[in-house]
């Protein structure tokens, strides 16, 4: 479903993601945990490109969301001027070695030392644009299939609840007004808020807002839902109603990626738990493996501190 390939994210001098790769399978429920500042939210936001990775690629099924990263395509690296000049001098220095050996060495060197420049000759540029043409998808199209729920709900303050739900389907001409409103009312009925359809978000409680935000994403019929700490900004008594709705979704077979501190939810719902630390995936496994028998001392330390 979603494939994150070796992404790095720098904010100025600060490296927030330090080479993260992971695959989210169709129908899988993945929960990402980790201390604050570990990069878990950034990784989630990289999945729908709200943050653009500095290096690396994000794929959704067979579509490439990011610009192609030459370091992930050896055949592209081989077309660069840097590669050919290195190869030339390497051959001169060590005439005995086989070409394959040298190739592996040079590619490793280029990757390690980040030697590729912006312009590396026509062949190289052509190869990159080839990948672009073949696989790259318009990010706005890709996002239609990925629902996102934010920590601070981010309901559109200038619109009613109903308008919040119908805006995107209507603007993107996916539905007629009647269809969009019908779907929206059904979704609101599902969360028991159809009587709030014409209220503005400011009149809703936090829990209501977050549930509306979830169904707003559902109104687009997404294939995957991304949750970015959906309960962190809620009063404790409202956390339950939001988690309930998320569990419902999980039971329906929705593919979900959830960044959260709700370990109970993770234990109950997740197929896989990813523990992130200092911009890397420190450990991953089933909830049982992670919670009952963590291998990494950092995971242990983190779990001890919050449980």
């Amino acid at each position: 479903m979603i494939s994150v390939k070796n992404i790095y994210k720098d904010f100025g001098k600060l490296r927030v993601l330090d080479g993260v790769s992971c695959d989210i399978k169709d129908g899988e429920r993945v929960v990402i945990i980790g201390p604050s500042g570990s990069g878990k939210s950034t990784m989630l936001r990289c999945m729908n490109l709200l943050e653009e990775p500095t290096y690396g690629e994000v794929w959704i099924e067979n579509d490439l969301l990011t610009a192609p990263d030459p370091y992930l395509h050896f055949d592209v690296i081989r077309k660069s001027k840097t590669y050919s000049s290195l190869m030339k001098s390497a051959k001169a220095a060590a005439p005995g070695k086989s070409e394959e050996e040298l190739d592996t060495e040079i590619i490793a060197k280029i990757k390690k030392e980040d030697l590729l420049k912006r312009f590396e000759g026509g062949e190289y540029s052509k190869a990159l644009s080839e990948i672009n043409k073949e696989s790259r998808i318009d990010i706005n199209l890709a996002r239609r299939n990925m629902g996102m729920v934010f920590q601070h709900f981010n309901l559109f303050n200038n619109m009613t609840v109903l308008q919040n739900l119908t805006l995107a389907p209507l603007e993107l001409k996916l539905k007629t007004k009647e269809e969009a409103e019908k779907t929206a009312m059904e979704l609101l009925a599902r969360i028991g808020l159809e009587d709030k359809a014409n209220e503005y978000p400011s009149r809703l409680s936090g829990g209501q807002k977050q549930r509306v935000a979830i169904v707003r994403a559902l109104a687009m019929n997404p294939k995957v839902m991304l949750f970015d700490e959906p309960t962190s900004a809620l009063d404790p008594e409202m956390v339950g109603e939001v988690l309930e709705l998320m569990k419902d979704l999980a039971n329906e077979g929705m593919t979900m990626v959830v960044v959260t501190h709700e370990m109970g939810f993770a234990r109950e719902v997740a197929d896989r738990v990813i523990f992130m630390c200092e911009g890397k995936i420190a450990e991953e496994g089933t909830p049982d493996e992670i919670f009952s028998n963590p291998q990494n001392p950092r995971t242990k330390q983190f779990l001890d501190s919050i449980l």
Binding site: N140, A142, R143, F156, A168, L172, A213, A217
Partner: peptide, 19 residues
């Protein structure tokens, strides 16, 4: 507000204009 709009697949311009 912008992020929510963009995450729904709206273009930058639409997000700007409508939200």
């Amino acid at each position: 507000q912008t992020e929510a709009g963009r995450a729904l697949g709206l273009t930058g311009a639409t997000t700007m204009a409508k939200i």
